[in-house]
Design a protein around this nucleic acid. Sequence first.
DNA 1: TTTTTTAATTAGAATATTCAAATTAATTTT
DNA 2: AAAATTAATTTGAATATTCTAATTAAAAAA
Lengths: 138, 138
Amino acid sequence: MNELQHIIALLSREIVELEESAKEQFSFNELTLTQMHYLETINHLRNPNLTELAFDMNLTKPSVTVAIDKLIEKEYVYKVKSDEDRRSMHLHLTEKGKLLNQMHDYAHKMLAERMITALDDSELSALKHLLYKYVNRK
Amino acid sequence: MNELQHIIALLSREIVELEESAKEQFSFNELTLTQMHYLETINHLRNPNLTELAFDMNLTKPSVTVAIDKLIEKEYVYKVKSDEDRRSMHLHLTEKGKLLNQMHDYAHKMLAERMITALDDSELSALKHLLYKYVNRK
DNA sequence: TTTTTTAATTAGAATATTCAAATTAATTTT
DNA sequence: AAAATTAATTTGAATATTCTAATTAAAAAA
């Protein structure tokens, strides 16, 4: 197999593991995997309305309505009626829901720290520069 | 925020997106998110028995028995009775279940290709070298 | 060899997840 | 202004997910 692809596979696996252990640190234990996925998607789409969320997740609107009701009940999400279209409800994460981001931050911080430990200053600066160039490609 | 951590966040997001779009390429549509998670974990643990799988996923054994029955029904998994302990059942992915790995490979290949496109030869070789050093740290 | 422990399963029940069909309320088209 | 469309919800139902308690069969300990 392509060597770069192999290295990416290892790195990718490490990121997944860090995210999973971060999830255990934070007390998201009261949420199912599916509910976590709803929160992730709401976060990623930045306050989508219900139709947008359903479309992105390949689910029907009734399914999403019911799922969101439960996340509202558990205080991870709240709805805001749109001013432009009074039929439309935008979904927001509550402070509790936003812990999700802290969880991701924690995982990313762990990886950054491991890189700092594993590489010396010049290597680290070179890696940072190269990854920076990659993620900011047009 | 730490700059390296920020770059890692972007890279991490990109990997997640590539994995998700790879999932759509392959026809795993007949599986739920949870069932995918079972397959991922079986793959990662390399043919665990039921007890090991339940422990790793923080679930009870009856829950896992039932979930695995469905994945066997759908022909993604099969069980093999252990020779060392005839009570124990080891879980294996079928050929259909192993498509999961091809899916991951596809996502990693996409990322590798994007890196090849975004960087020139010397940059790419430097990046490969640095990531190699990182993932192979003791 | 009898007792205890362990791996997995079965049974039965609660909650979660999802959908199609019908409804309500607001917006857009005619 | 009336008709058609659209966003979200409610209703009712099927399947998935999970658990506790009880059972079966094999292994380990007494």
